[in-house]
């Protein structure tokens, strides 16, 4: 699968990229929402999944996904949340949310979710 990852924390980006590349996914990373949005729009059709932090400086994860939806792209998303209490107020019902992962989460759990998305998409 081709996966876009957005997170402002460089360590997280690196670890996620390592892990998912190891599992034979193609990974593109962006350190903020604006860059992620631009990256996605360059080649919108190649991406199968977006993994993004909820909150980021500038354009945050949730806004990017809504923006993409407005442009007509509905792509599965995995949100990473630092603190659910604050963030869960956002209404994500209209989005294709595969999962919301609370930090700290296990990489195995992420793998399970990614596999599920892969199965669902390949049907």
């Amino acid at each position: 699968m081709k996966i876009l990852i957005m997170d402002d924390e460089s360590q997280i980006l690196k670890l996620l990229e390592n892990y998912l590349t190891m599992l034979n996914h193609q990974v593109v990373t962006a350190s903020d929402g604006q860059k992620g949005l631009e990256l996605f729009l360059q080649t919108p059709d190649v991406f199968d999944l977006i993994i993004t932090d909820f909150k980021m400086p500038g354009l945050d994860g949730i806004s990017v996904i809504f923006r993409l939806k407005d442009e007509g792209y509905e792509i599965p998303v995995v949100f990473i949340s630092g603190h659910r209490m604050k963030e869960e107020k956002v209404d994500t019902r209209d989005l294709k949310v595969a999962a919301i992962l609370d930090k700290p989460f296990d990489l195995k759990r992420l793998n399970q979710i990614v596999s599920l998305v892969e199965k669902a998409e390949s049907k």
Binding site: Q11, I12, K103, P104, F105, D106, L107
Partner: peptide
């Protein structure tokens, strides 16, 4: 605190 914990767990 969840941020560093997240990184630690992944590492």
């Amino acid at each position: 605190i969840n941020n560093p914990l997240g990184v630690i767990n992944m590492a």
